[in-house]
Nucleic acid binder design. Structure first.
Length: 308
DNA sequence: TTGTGTTTTATTGCCTCC
DNA sequence: GGAGGCAATAAAACACAA
């Protein structure tokens, strides 16, 4: 590998001396793209001449940074080339050259590989390995970037989700409050006299419910339904009234289900009664987590279909 | 100087494509 | 089947604190 630099030892010594000239940090990277100045170079647009880089640096070629730290005599060079193949890092200039080439095209066609190897005095295999490792590093960096993007996206979504959750809790509390109000008024309404109840025309829902109820139940249904009609509108006007004595102290509604006096109903009758009458008036009790699924649609919750 | 963690160069084995 | 790419890994080189 090391022998690929070629040249006699004395020439190499000169080269090694010149390597001590540091690569100017402020060197314009544009100088890396002067590939037209390399007559031997007719490859792809991404190819460059390493000589151009070094001339811009004011230094000649140098390939082995391993010599940078030594007082290199010929003996050292001999020793260097006679020792078994050791891993040697590329010089700063070589790496810069490869980096610029990589920026232009991160894949390596055979002719470009050959040309780069020639220009840098490296084995084509080394060029291939360098590009391979460079692609791996690039991929890792890219993954880190992608991760950061996803992370921030997740964070903002989580904030939105948490806010929605809070909003949902608030709305649930409101709904429960309204429900309680409603039921309380229904209960109060059921105590109205039959006379009052019968003096009013039963609303549609009551009639429909009555169709499926026994005759004995009709009066009850009518009574409830009539009250219902009135109560809803008034309940809506004073939706939030947590001071109501019927509102559970812990803020959770104590009862969601209308409880008519069913003492004179058989179990079957009770069932029928519930089925025919309750659905429009009963609000399902909201359990924790009922609305915690952000993907659940409104239609998933029968609750949202207000009876009126 | 030395121990340790990181970076870079290189190898190996597997896979895909022509 | 050979060439080339990639992932995993080894190992040398390097940086740096103690």
């Amino acid at each position: 590998m090391a022998s690929s630099t070629g040249g006699s030892n004395s020439n190499l010594s000169v080269l090694l001396q010149s390597q001590r000239v540091p690569c100017a940090a402020s060197q314009s990277l544009e100088s890396f793209y002067l590939s037209g100045s390399s007559p031997s170079f007719l490859g792809s647009r991404s190819m460059m001449s390493f000589e151009d880089v070094h001339q811009a640096n004011g230094s000649t070629r140098s390939f082995f940074r391993a010599f940078d730290h030594e007082d290199n005599g010929d003996d050292d060079v001999d020793e260097y080339f006679h020792q078994p193949e050791k891993k040697r890092r590329l010089t700063v200039d070589q790496v810069q050259f490869l980096e610029k080439s990589f920026e232009l095209e991160n894949k390596l066609e055979p002719e470009r590989k050959t040309q780069l190897a020639k220009d840098l005095g490296l084995q084509p295999r080394q060029i291939a390995i360098w590009f391979q490792n460079r692609r791996a590093r690039w991929k890792t960096k890219q993954l880190e970037k992608d991760y950061d993007v996803l992370q921030s996206s997740y964070n903002s979504l989580k904030v939105d989700y948490d806010n929605l959750l809070k909003e949902n809790e608030k709305l649930k509390a409101e709904v429960n409050l309204i429900t309680d109000k409603l039921l309380l008024r229904e209960k109060g309404g059921s105590e109205l006299s039959d006379k009052d109840a019968l003096s009013q025309e039963p609303p549609k829902k009551a009639i429909l419910a009555a169709d499926s109820a026994s005759e004995g139940e009709v009066s009850k249904i009518s009574t409830v339904a009539c009250c219902k009609q009135d109560e809803i509108s008034s309940a809506k006007s004073d939706i939030v009234d947590s001071d109501s004595p019927h509102y559970a102290a812990d803020g959770v509604h104590s009862s969601c289900v209308f409880e008519p006096d069913q003492s004179d109903l058989s179990q079957d009758e009770e069932d029928n009664f519930s089925k025919s009458l309750l659905p429009p008036y009963v609000f399902p009790k909201l359990e924790d987590g009922d609305y915690s699924d952000p993907h659940a649609s409104f239609e998933d919750h029968a609750f949202w279909s207000w009876p009126y």
